[in-house]
Structure formats: structure tokens, C-alpha cells
Simulated assay, not measured.
Amino acid sequence: MKILYFYPENPLSFSQGNNSRALSLLNYFKDRSIHLDFVGEQSNDFTEDSIQELKKENLIRNGYLLKKEKKSSSIIRYYLDYSFPKKINSRFKDFDRTKFGYGNQFLKIINAGDYDVVIISYVYWSSLLNIGLKVEKTKWIVDTHDFLTSQFQDNKKFALDKYFKKEIDLMKKFDQVWVISYEEKYLFSQFLKTPVHLVTHSLPKPETLLNAEKTIDIIYVASDNFHNIKSAVWFFKEVYPLLSKGIRITVVGKINKHIPKLHNVENLHFVKDLDEIYKKSRIAICPMLSGTGLKIKVIESLSHGLPVVCTERGVDGLVNKTNNGCLASNDSSVFAAYIEKLLHEPDYYGKNHLEAKSFFENNFDTKRTYEVLDAIFLWQ
């Protein structure tokens, strides 16, 4: 089997949870010895050096980066293939992230590859699926990652019915749809005849270090997207002042650019091996106030047996909303009380620690997700 996998960002960048999700899929294909070619989008963080690193790790066979072409390279093609179609579909420009030249470059890759399966990450890259490319042999899959209509609801011209219909119509172009959360599987399957498969995020069970020294009371991992910035501001304004001053907090990721300097907060903008940080931590937090889909950092925390204190958005995508190692509340005082109780009551901590481990092993262990993917590819 020969697969082409499109994912715009660098899967080896550990700054965002979605990259971890992409990397987990690459590891599946590597484990199953499937020929995998990769296409990404060139950026300052994703260069030819990154492609070579993916090859060095034996995660891909061939790698390509789509590069924005200059308008002057072909004026006629710019207007006919890019500018005019963009203007016609300007109402839904949010659903198309391609730039000038991408379509032509992608077409060349497809024509030269003779692929059995093409996987496109995110619905807003679905324009890469050119109807003229759909041959009987090739199966096209969209890995949605998220419910995009919800992401656009603050746009001035947002209209729920039109945006949702557009998202569903784009999915209908594909032979198969992958979702990452239970809620999205339920929602999309109500409107699609196309098979919808739950391919959630998976992780190998981490090695447990007996008697590992817990030097971090709270671990908070986040990138600096809009949802995370709003959530971090809420936590440090509404929850942090209610916590005991001696609690040791470590914040990892680009979110640190939006966090004030505090005496008991360690700011790590980049960490190569997050596992080592998790092993030193007692609990994790996920104070998300908005956003959709499964929270990858919650799954990573549960894999290490860390109880997670979160808001209601933190348990999105989980089949169980309770008895899963997560304590959820949108009330700042209750949020703070959960943290204090976990840190000061050993029996309470132990109960949630065991629930976290059990829930992860039953739902997100690599073995579980590999079984789902194996079943999907049986139809090839």
C-alpha cells in the first residue's frame, strides 16, 4: 500500500498538541511498514531540514513542501486558477488555506505518486482534492482534527447554517472521514453517508519511574493560539490568586509569552522531552474556556497518571465525562479547590490517579488506536 499524507505543520515540533496527533499517525504507518509520502506547507518552522529529519527517523519515504509562488511567475494562471476562484468563494475563504501555486504543485506530486490512499488533514485544505484527480483506485480521506464551524463563530459575517453546510459539503467530497472525538463522530455522522471513523489520539504507555521525585505541583502545557491565551488569562487572573503561595507551577510552551512573571511559576518556552516534565509533576491543568475537539495535552497528562483539573471544555471528546481522572469546573473557586484537595489529600489524589491511568489505558493506549486503523485499512 502506498499512502500520501498531507499535514501542513511540522509533526516533530512539540509546541502544539495537533502536531503530536500527526506524529502518532506517522508512527503507526512506520510500525506497519506502510510506504508513506508526506506533504507539508513551507514556513520558517517547517523547512527542507525538517523533511530530512522525518526521513532520518524513518517516518516518511519522500517529503514535499508546498511553496507560495509569486504572482509574477504566471499572471494568467494566477488569475484563472487562484484569484478569480477565491473571489467567487470569498464568503467561505475561511475554509480554504491554499495559496497561489499549491494546487499545481500538489497535482504534480499526485500524478507522479500512484497512491492508493491520500489523507488530507483539516477540512480547510480539502481544495487539494481536485475532482479531476479522483480515480477509481485512489481513496481520499479527510482527517478533520476539529469541528471548524465553531472556530469561525466570532467572524462578522458568520452564519451557522451556511458555515455548517459548507463544512459538511466539503467532507462529502471524500471517500472517508476521520474524527478525533466522540462528539464530532456523532455530529458529522448525522449528516454524512460517507463512513465516519473515530481515530482518536493515541500514545504508548509511558515508562513508570518508581519513587520519581515530584518537583512540580502543577504542569500547564499550551501553545499561544487565541483559545489558549484567553484561558491562561482567566487562570492567572481568577484561579491563581486563590491558590496557596507555595505551590510550584511549571508552564511549558509559547503560552509563556502571555503569562506574567510570578515567583512560584517556572516558564519553559520549549521542552524537547515533555515526558520528563510529566514524570516530575503531580497534577496537570487545562483551563480551556473555548475551542472544540479533543485536548491532546489532557490525554498526555492522563497517560502519565496525572489527575487533570480542567474546565468543561477540557473533557470535550472523552467518552466519559466523569471517573476519568479529570475534575472539571468553570467556577474559579471550585477549580482552585480541586487543585488544593489533590495536592493535600493523598487518598483523594490516589483515587484520581488510578482513574486517570485506567481511563487512558482503556481508550487511548496505542494498541487501541492501532486496532481501529488496522480495521480501516483492511478495505484496501
Rank of each mutant, 00 (worst) to 15 (best):
K139A: 08
F152Q: 05
N267H: 13
F377Q: 04
L198N: 07
N155W: 01
L133W: 06
G253E: 02
S333K: 15
N362F: 09
W140P: 06
L107W: 02
E53V: 10
Y182S: 13
G291S: 04
L294E: 02
G132E: 11
P241T: 09
N211G: 03
D49V: 09
V319A: 10
Y349Q: 13
L23R: 04
I110V: 14
K367M: 02
I249C: 03
A337E: 14
W178K: 07
K341W: 11
R21L: 02
V177M: 04
G350C: 09
I51L: 15
I109H: 06
N225V: 11
K214P: 05
K257V: 00
L342A: 09
G317E: 03
S181A: 12
K134R: 08
V265M: 11
R368L: 13
A222C: 02
Y79N: 12
W234L: 03
F235T: 02
A222G: 03
R32T: 11
F236I: 04
G246S: 15
I120A: 09
K139W: 08
A328M: 06
Y163V: 08
D45H: 12
I180A: 04
N323K: 14
K166R: 15
K137V: 01
Q16C: 07
Y102K: 08
C326I: 06
S90A: 14
I218R: 03
E53I: 11
P287A: 08
N19K: 04
G17W: 02
I180F: 01
R368M: 12
F158I: 09
K108H: 12
Y370M: 09
V372M: 04
K193V: 10
F46A: 04
K70H: 11
Y338R: 04
T144I: 08
D161N: 13
Y186H: 13
L373E: 06
D374L: 02
K245L: 08
I60K: 05
A337T: 14
S329P: 10
P346I: 09
I76T: 13
E266N: 14
Q151T: 11
I51C: 07
L4Y: 01
F174E: 05
P8R: 11
V252I: 14
N111Y: 06
N264W: 08
E53C: 02
L4N: 00
G305L: 10
D94W: 12
I218L: 10
H258Q: 10
D146H: 06
F158T: 06
L160R: 13
V123K: 02
H145P: 01
K71Q: 09
S332Y: 10
Y349R: 05
W125F: 15
E238I: 00
